[in-house]
Design a protein around this nucleic acid. Structure first.
Length: 747
DNA sequence: TAAAAATTAAACACCG
DNA sequence: TCGGTGTTTAATTTTT
């Protein structure tokens, strides 16, 4: 989910980003045409037209983005039609799509930045985003105005046309200037982030001074992942900035050559550039700060060499991966292959983009968090502030059960005025500032998550996963909820007690202490609640969730709405697996005899095996004793919950197996030559019984027991279980009707 | 305010 | 014997 959302957001945010790249090239072209005075007689002001121009370019960039191969938004059929503007190839390269999720994760995981650095960075990013937003809104307005004016000039005379053209040309030039200024701002952002990137990548800037700013592109061999066209465009991008400089538009930090040439860096980057004046935030960094940072950075990189680009004998320069036997060779390689040339510069820029996108994403996520917190704590209808100690997460998560867009936000409505809300003044802006003092101690404050009306816990924990993982805050969920989540999170929907413990400590920092208390509570809950089913395994015992029971506990009326697969599938799944493992049946045991499809219990079953969703609704009878006799199955073939052989192997409170075994089956499965324990025999017997009675002409095709009949006294009972027919749709209908009746009965 | 649910603590048994 | 696991009871706290 994280990756998904990340890539999505990055993709969105990259729009404006790449728009800028596009504008850059436009500007490049425009500047070569020379510029003229901004004199215009148009009713539309130059500035307005500039904005329009920018807007158009932005749209062009977006369109291009939509056409990027590899972009999820591509529209392959219209590639040639929708290119109103020439757009540089570099846009493609700058596109975040070239960043693999793994790369993102790697970068994220490095976390070399200090919280302060990140904070500053985030603030910058937020301001930039805000500004971009305002600009876009403004462009829109201007575009509308221009449109109106163009309508007025629909039939101009020839002279007027010429005038208009000239005017437009001038406007275009002026627009390009403005665009360029914007690009400078953008690049300033980039430069600062590049500092951070450098700090992360320690050693990136330790490249030996290259041959300088060559006027011509050195067409070296492209690195992996970069096409010659892309490189060429990169070169264009880089050199265009030089051209701008030559044209008198001084700026700082636009190109990496400035940044990378250490001999001039300090003086160059510390110059306060004019565009900053247009920038309301100017990164929040003074030139002096930049200088300081830069100089210290050089010391740093000098001391640490370039080991960040070297690891496991491989050059870690993006797209390189050349094998270097030792560090010396790596340095050699670095100097020769990744010297300060255009290619390296371009690659560095790409990397800057990568980092920037990630930072933007982080910024967005943080913004979202703050908005969430603000939303949850700044309710005007709030009856009264909580007199109780602060429990940020409790109050937060209690009311975040429902999406904020959803009106029936039950825990927050005045119908529940007792819901404690922490006053905003007490609310930390970010979770990381939560101090232990602001967190209730164990037992002092328990604000449990309401089970009712709640979304799946996973969707609640997930957005705050990092928070709970790191903050010593008691999660506002009941033990039962957490245990269930732990089990649901597991691959096979089953966990040993120890694994449950691990999940707790892994997921919540809070449970890394007071182990004796909460572990006891976990055990207590496992035993207490019927929804937790203990299943013996060869290795010991695992715990599964009886979802039906769990939902029943929360809200009995919800049970009937549960998907069929959520019933006893997990328990049976685990028990059958256990039994099958016990009986050394790799064929069945490994492939998921019970495929509880909706909950994705075990993955797909091969065609020849039992599969399908369990039937709905067999109300459990609690704590029923096991009789163990098949005679207790009713005449319809329904098993009486009390007498399932399954109960042999599960704890007493586990009600029964349910008749969810199988609804459809194709092909056959052979079970032979295995050693039967009483438990597995019970299970197979049960399966066979169900197969030969309930399903014999029904969903499950006929089952023939070959060789020897089942003999409960026979510990070594070879047999084959053969099924032949496919399930029939008509019978499925019958089953549905039957299940419907069952559902009604349960009400 | 009472009932229900959840939490905490503890005792005990079983098992490897 | 010990520690882990599982069950149960009881007291307390929190929620409904």
């Amino acid at each position: 989910m994280m990756q998904e959302s990340a890539s999505e957001t990055i993709s969105n945010s990259s729009m404006s980003q790449n728009g800028m790249s596009t504008l850059s090239s436009q500007l490049d072209a425009g500047s070569r045409d020379g510029r003229s005075s901004g004199d215009t007689s148009s009713e539309v002001s130059t500035v307005e037209l500039l904005h329009l121009q920018q807007q158009q370019a932005l749209q062009a960039a977006r369109q291009l983005l939509l056409q990027q191969p590899g972009s999820g938004l591509k529209s392959p059929k219209n590639n040639d039609k929708q290119r109103p503007l020439q757009v540089p190839v570099s846009v493609a390269m700058m596109s975040p799509q070239v960043i693999t999720p793994q790369q993102m994760q790697q970068i994220l995981q490095q976390q070399v930045l200090s919280p302060q650095q990140l904070q500053a960075l985030l603030q910058q990013q937020q301001a930039v985003m805000l500004q971009q937003q305002h600009l876009q809104e403004f462009y829109k307005k201007q575009q509308e105005q221009l449109h109106l004016q163009l309508l007025q000039q629909q039939h101009p005379s020839k002279q007027a046309k010429e005038q208009q053209q000239q005017q437009q040309h001038q406007q275009q030039l002026a627009a390009q200037q403005l665009v360029f200024q914007q690009q400078l701002l953008q690049m300033q952002q980039l430069q600062q982030q590049q500092h951070l990137l450098s700090m992360q990548r320690q050693g990136l800037l330790s490249l030996p001074p290259g041959p300088g700013q060559s006027a011509l592109p050195a067409q070296t061999l492209p690195p992996a992942g970069l096409s010659p066209a892309e490189l060429q465009q990169l070169w264009k991008d880089v050199t265009s900035s030089h051209t701008m400089e030559d044209n008198g538009l001084k700026h700082s930090g636009l190109d990496l050559s400035t940044t990378n040439s250490s001999s001039t860096t300090s003086s160059t980057t510390s110059k306060a550039s004019p565009p900053i004046a247009h920038h309301p935030i100017s990164n929040g960094q003074s030139p002096a700060v930049n200088t300081r940072r830069e100089s210290s950075l050089h010391e740093e990189t000098g001391a640490l060499h370039s080991h960040s680009l070297y690891g496991h004998g491989v050059c870690k320069w993006p797209g390189c991966e050349s094998i270097c036997e030792d560090f010396g060779q790596f340095l050699k390689h670095l100097n020769s292959e990744h010297a300060l040339d255009d290619r390296s510069t371009a690659q560095c820029r790409v990397q800057m983009q990568v980092v920037q996108q990630l930072e933007i994403q982080l910024s967005k996520e943080r913004e979202r968090l703050q908005a969430m917190m603000a939303h949850l704590h700044m309710r005007p209808s709030e009856p009264k502030p909580s007199p109780k100690p602060l429990n940020l997460v409790s109050s937060m998560t209690m009311s975040k059960n429902l999406p904020s867009v959803s009106p029936p936000n039950l825990p927050q409505t005045p119908t529940t005025p007792t819901t404690p809300i922490t006053p905003l003044s007490q609310m930390p802006q970010v979770p990381s500032v939560l101090s232990p003092a602001s967190v209730p101690s164990m037992g002092a404050m328990r604000r449990r998550h309401s089970d009712k009306y709640s979304m799946p816990l996973s969707s609640e924990i997930a957005p705050n996963y990092e928070f709970y993982k790191n903050a010593d805050v008691r999660p506002p969920f009941t033990y039962a909820t957490l245990i269930r989540q732990a089990i649901m999170d597991s691959k096979d929907m089953q966990l040993t007690l120890n694994e449950i413990y691990s999940w707790f400590t892994r997921t919540f920092a809070y449970f890394r202490r007071n182990a004796a208390t909460w572990k006891n509570a976990v055990r207590h809950n496992l035993s207490l609640h019927k929804c937790f089913v203990r299943v013996e395994n060869v290795k010991g015992a695992v715990w599964t969730v009886d979802e039906m029971e769990y939902q029943k506990r929360r809200s009995p009326t919800l049970v009937k709405n549960l998907p069929p697969s959520l019933g006893y599938g997990a328990a049976l799944n685990a028990s059958l697996q256990a039994a099958l493992a016990e009986t050394s049946l790799p064929l069945l045991g490994n492939t998921g005899l019970m495929n509880s499809s909706a909950s994705g219990l075990m993955g797909a079953s091969p065609p020849g095996l039992l599969s399908g969703s369990p039937p709905t609704l067999l109300q459990s009878s609690t704590h029923d004793e096991l009789n163990g006799s098949l005679e207790h199955l009713d005449t319809n073939g329904h098993s009486s919950p009390a007498y399932s052989p399954h109960a042999h192997m599960v704890s007493q409170k586990s009600p029964y197996i349910g008749d969810y075994v199988c609804q459809q089956q194709v092909g056959c499965a052979f079970v032979s030559g295995c050693s039967w324990t009483s438990t597995s025999r019970w299970q197979m017997l049960y399966l066979l019984y169900m197969a030969t009675t309930k399903w014999k002409n029904c969903v499950l095709p006929p089952v023939h027991v070959k060789e020897e009949p089942l003999n409960m006294d026979d510990d070594d009972c070879p047999m084959s279980l053969v099924t032949t027919a496919d399930h029939s749709p008509e019978l499925d209908e019958e089953r549905e009707l039957e299940e419907g009746n069952l559902s009604e009965d349960l009400e």
